[in-house]
Design a protein around this nucleic acid. Structure first.
Lengths: 146, 146
DNA sequence: TTTGAATAGTTGCACAAACAACTATATGTC
DNA sequence: GACATATAGTTGTTTGTGCAACTATTCAAA
């Protein structure tokens, strides 16, 4: 049985990710207004390093769904900003382990607060049970396609 | 009452748009495999021109949620690919009206089929009523932030 | 009718993504 | 140990995005 739930007119915003684009733009604006001088993409890398630092670039690729060149350049820029440091692994000289600087550690609390604020603004007036269903659907979509 | 539905661990994929990124990547791959040599972003512009051509770049900005420079360059590239044509408006010489070439008209059916296919793959196993709720939530998110 | 503000579009710059081609290191097999 | 293969990371190219600054045209008010 085909799952043909999308009439043509509705397909556009799903594919283009209108909602997540709007969230990202709002978050970026809030970062800028708060004087937090990082991009959303840089933040998304730091996000995983705050959970666990000293992981390899490849692990960052997996965590952030980005390819290796993207992570190379994000780490390049984060290094220029003095937020992370590449440390060659002792066991495997192919690997860089990525560590946070003290400056990056200080960013965590502020940026997380702004991120939560942004999501609360985004989800204002949406009942919690619908948010749950939405998250569930998006997770399935991701699993179906990955 | 705060709408604090997001625990920290869940905030990431919402902001980064994991699902819509996955959809866009899958669609791009399918375009490539079908020999349809356009990007998703170019397709999103053509999408609106197929609905109504002869609109201005500014109208394309509004329709696609992009800023003017982005549309300028997308139209540049679509013109290089011989898919659209800028025609200066007779009434207002500031305005370019964008028209489809015959080549672009031929692309419509194929790309729309692939797009619908992609969404059906993405939503396989998702019950229709949950998809509806998800769309509803994403629309509210967009409205809350725009 | 002139002047100032608004609008449409372009250009430059920094950042990011996707792909292909590349280097260096590690691993597994003969 | 030597060689093929896999893995980690880098670099180049094209495309797209967001912002600021710019040109050209239109419009409205004095």
């Amino acid at each position: 049985m085909s799952n043909n739930q999308f009439k043509k007119g509705e397909l556009y915003s799903f594919i283009t990710g209108k909602a997540s684009t709007a969230i990202a733009r709002r978050l970026q604006k809030k970062f800028n207004m708060a004087g937090l001088n990082i991009t959303i993409e840089q933040w998304s890398v730091l996000y995983h390093l705050w959970k666990r630092e000293g992981i390899s670039q490849q692990e960052l690729c997996n965590a952030t769904f980005r390819d290796k060149p993207s992570i190379t350049r994000l780490v390049d820029n984060l290094e220029k900003l003095n937020l992370v440091k590449r440390v060659p692994s002792e066991h495997d000289r192919r690997i860089n382990l990525i560590y946070l600087t003290r400056q990056a550690q200080k960013l965590q609390e502020d940026t997380m607060t702004v991120a939560e604020e942004t999501l609360n603004e985004a989800l204002e007036t949406v009942p919690a049970d619908k948010v749950d269903i939405c998250k569930e659907v998006l997770q399935i979509v991701y699993d179906n396609l990955k």
